[in-house]
């Protein structure tokens, strides 16, 4: 039976992992390859590396990071952050990434998803969505569509959550699937960092409306939150950042808990 995935997410700035693991005696917690090997040994199902580098000079540094990590760690690796073109994606895939996330650039140019998917296959293309709850749902203007009322009370933000768009995440996820995305990485900006649980309503709304896997992100604080995201939230995978990095929980603890609650996981 297909297992639910638990995916640590690491932020990389200028080639170094920021927010290190604090509970384990790593030689160098800032080294992406060492961190990746650590999470692999902990039973992580995949890894997401998010390039938070601001300057374009450091993009090459990220390619090098991906090359080093993928020659030492043999589990799926998704890379996101600053991907704007088919060539950006090609560079990451050739360096050893298995999937590449697009976000802001795809909002500006949805056909980017289609071009990447045609070139490398849908399985390589992850659409990252940052969504926030709003009082008055946005009107949609995607790809020449007539403006229409949003289906749900959320709005997509880009540029690391700084810039609002007139896009509804449910509709955007459906369009992205049609354009050839293979997976959705869905972050709730409201829940992110709050440790009060994933946004189950948002996650379920997106997951129910697409036929591709959805990774829930933002808000994990307790073991129960993972179960809820994979249960009522209908997520196929859960993304975790700080909770793992600061040692509050371990991947193995999350998996044992999920297994006890009857969800299929690998290596619990």
């Amino acid at each position: 039976m297909l297992t639910r995935r638990v995916i640590p997410c690491l932020d990389v700035d200028a080639g170094r992992v920021v927010k290190g693991v604090s509970f384990v005696d790593l030689r160098d917690a800032g080294d992406p390859a060492e961190m990746a090997a650590f999470y692999d040994s902990e039973g992580a199902d995949e890894l997401v590396f998010l390039d938070i580098t601001a300057s374009s000079d450091d993009r090459e540094t990220m390619v090098d990071v991906v090359r080093r990590v993928s020659s030492q760690v043999f589990i799926p690796l998704t890379v996101g952050g600053g991907i704007r073109t088919v060539d950006d994606m090609r560079k990451m895939l050739e360096a050893g990434a298995d999937k590449v996330g697009v976000n802001s650039a795809a909002i500006r140019d949805p056909e980017l998803i289609n071009r990447c998917s045609k070139e490398f296959g849908a399985q390589c293309v992850v659409l990252a969505i940052d969504a926030k709850r709003v009082a008055n749902p946005a009107y949609l203007r995607l790809q020449g569509e007539e403006p229409q009322l949003a289906e749900a009370p959320w709005q997509v933000f880009t540029h690391g959550g700084r810039r609002p768009t007139a896009v509804d995440p449910v509709k955007w996820a459906k369009l992205a699937e049609n354009l050839g995305a293979g997976e959705i990485l869905l972050t709730s900006m409201d829940a992110d960092g709050q440790k009060t649980g994933y946004d189950l309503q948002l996650t379920a709304a997106v997951s129910e409306n697409v036929g591709i896997p959805v990774i829930a992100s933002g808000g994990a604080g307790e073991l129960e939150h993972f179960y809820d995201a994979l249960g009522v939230g209908e997520a196929d995978a859960v993304l975790v950042a700080s909770l793992f990095h600061f040692g509050e929980l371990r991947v193995s603890e999350v998996k044992s808990y999920l297994a006890e609650r009857g969800l299929p996981v690998r290596g619990a």
């Binding site: 297909l2 639910r4 997976e183 036929g211």
Partner: peptide
């Protein structure tokens, strides 16, 4: 098939992840 299901639950396509 697009209506692929398991225990009454619709399954996502691609089949993506770890399976035994």
């Amino acid at each position: 098939p697009s209506d692929l299901s398991e225990n009454g639950k619709r399954l996502k396509i691609p089949h993506m992840g770890w399976n035994s």
